[in-house]
Design a protein around this nucleic acid. Sequence first.
DNA 1: CGAATTGTTGAGCATACTCAAGGAGCGTGG
DNA 2: CCACGCTCCTTGAGTATGCTCAACAATTCG
Lengths: 244, 244
Amino acid sequence: MAQKLLFAGDLTPADLVALDGLVQNRRSVEARDDIVRDGERPNAVRLVLEGIACRYKMMPNGERAILAYLIPGDFCDLHITVLGHMDHAIGAITDCQVADLHSDQIQNLIQTKPRVAKALWWSTLVDEAILRTWLANVAHRASGCRLAHLLCELRLRLEIVGLADKHQMRLPLTQEELGDALGISNVHISRVFQKLREQDLVLTKNRSLIFPDLARLEDFAEFNADYLHLCKPGAQPQSLSRAS
Amino acid sequence: MAQKLLFAGDLTPADLVALDGLVQNRRSVEARDDIVRDGERPNAVRLVLEGIACRYKMMPNGERAILAYLIPGDFCDLHITVLGHMDHAIGAITDCQVADLHSDQIQNLIQTKPRVAKALWWSTLVDEAILRTWLANVAHRASGCRLAHLLCELRLRLEIVGLADKHQMRLPLTQEELGDALGISNVHISRVFQKLREQDLVLTKNRSLIFPDLARLEDFAEFNADYLHLCKPGAQPQSLSRAS
DNA sequence: CGAATTGTTGAGCATACTCAAGGAGCGTGG
DNA sequence: CCACGCTCCTTGAGTATGCTCAACAATTCG
């Protein structure tokens, strides 16, 4: 569950135990239901344990803008008590398992475990970095490259939590849902997918994607994982101490 | 300088004095120079005091993706020591005045003044909310609406720091710079601007924009300021205490 | 098996891009 | 003060990309 935070830097086993201890009120959310509604004033932080969810906004013309995908290990709204109300909704795409963590618990953890506090900061800052990358992707890349880039990102993020490898990932998203994130219509995304398949960059099988040659795909996608800020677990902590 | 943070909630005059006290090493940056370079490991937080800057990434094809505009009162990288390296650059668009704040100073302030800490959190979370809105804007709105939305946002943000009013703002950005933020080519943005002018939604005069009827423009832009999370200074604090 | 959802195809149209040329505004230097 | 060069904006023309609508195929699920 907390695998992802291992990439934040230097967590100790005790930190991990403390993090796992947070997960008490586990609950299920059905596909297509909201986990947090737009405008709400939530008093708990949500953590996705299983399934895929998304941040989204409904646009006035009825389109759904998907702003982020949340995969197991992702926090929903660490911050929300500071802002007051949600300016977007969070919805379950597949059936999900979610944990509700009370702000007090988190506050307590942050105050007693500085490394955990830093890891949680890291997590929200990486979310922001992903957002920046999506913005650049949507605004400045051709559609094939755009889709490929999103797939590369999802593959890597899923790999980190043990849900994908170099050659394959299960991705229970419809083409339309990918399109809603990329700003591409459902008809067109189908054609874009075809082009990727024609070039043997991805194969689709059921709800799984197969990558015959990941390096080639990442090259085509102009994918550079730096923005995910993954320091390898166990590696030298990359922190202030090393700043030049 | 700290006007913006008044909208974060309930700062006291003493808090404001403490914030202003941070600004010591003021320096100038010339238009088109970088304030922070991509990949850098900065050890200080930057604050824009005067001028307009932007976060940007250079794309492999040579295009510049503008990811945010920074106006006076905006912080550059409150967070960066947690992430280690910059995944984008920050550049001055006009001549700028910038303050370098040492991480220690900020840390100190955060630990001694909880309201200031909250205000700084608020500031970075609003930046993230703006990013989400830009993503939705670029991916899901037609070009006219897209440009109009950006103009409405900039006008309001500039108004907060006393640099615009309901009818007019000085905006020293080229059309190309607006296009780089919106994912629209320089030729096309000129035509989009023309359409806005034809409908009397904006007039351009030198480097100033005039809004004959702001309500109509905001309506056309589908602009809803909720995402900027501005609680009016002096109003009831919108915080946890009121969560339902 | 049947219904619903998801993906695919074709055709026509709208939007936006590129390339190329020209005009307007501004600052510098003769 | 004018001439020049630079940057920025504008216009036209041709092309590419992506949208909508509509029909149909494939897949999934009850």
